[in-house]
């Protein structure tokens, strides 16, 4: 797996929960080719395998923590995620658990950044609500900017 990975977590058939994968779609062509773009349903072991050997991993996921839908949170993942994020989206054995488990068995990347996009309720569907679609665009720009800064560190010196 690449030194730098961006993972979009979610289910494309579950309405606003698709926001993670859609951010990945919109990042295509916006980042250096050496950055891996990965879609995930949030399966913890898939996440661990995807990021365990990476230097920098950025995860984009829908969260339900009672905030305003469309608001964007950025968290340094290795510090642990807010407990209010637990049980967000349709994949319960998900990002929160993967980070805790990765910490317990030494399977975390060197640096882990999580963007949480606040969504309302999750119900089946194939369209993002307008406020969530706008938040997806916002996160795309934030990730691009993030890569221009911290990503450069890993990508330029990235020989191992």
């Amino acid at each position: 797996m690449a030194d730098v990975v961006v993972i979009g977590v979610g289910n494309r058939m579950m309405g606003d929960d698709a926001v993670g994968p859609i951010v990945i779609d919109r990042l295509a062509g916006r980042l250096p080719e050496s950055v891996a773009l990965v879609e995930s349903v949030g399966d913890a072991t898939h996440l661990l395998d995807t990021w365990r050997d990476a230097r920098l991993t950025v995860v984009v996921d829908a969260v339900v923590s009672g905030g305003v839908p469309g608001s964007v949170h950025r968290v340094e993942g290795k510090m642990g995620l807010p407990s209010s994020w637990r049980s967000a989206s349709t994949h319960l054995i998900g990002v929160v658990e993967a980070i805790e488990l990765g910490g317990a068995v030494d399977m975390l990347p060197d640096e882990l950044v999580v963007y949480g996009i606040e969504i309302g309720t999750v119900s089946p569907g194939v369209e993002l609500a307008p406020d969530i679609a706008a938040a997806a665009d916002e996160v795309v720009e934030l990730v691009v900017a993030e890569m221009a800064e911290s990503g450069r560190r890993y990508l330029v010196s990235g020989t191992r």
């Binding site: 661990l48 317990a104 068995v105």
Partner: peptide, 18 residues
């Protein structure tokens, strides 16, 4: 309480499962 709590005491079990 959870697999994560279990991993603290039984790391090799969890690693085998993974």
């Amino acid at each position: 309480e959870s697999g994560i709590h279990m991993a603290a005491d039984h790391r090799e079990v969890v690693e085998q499962g993974l």
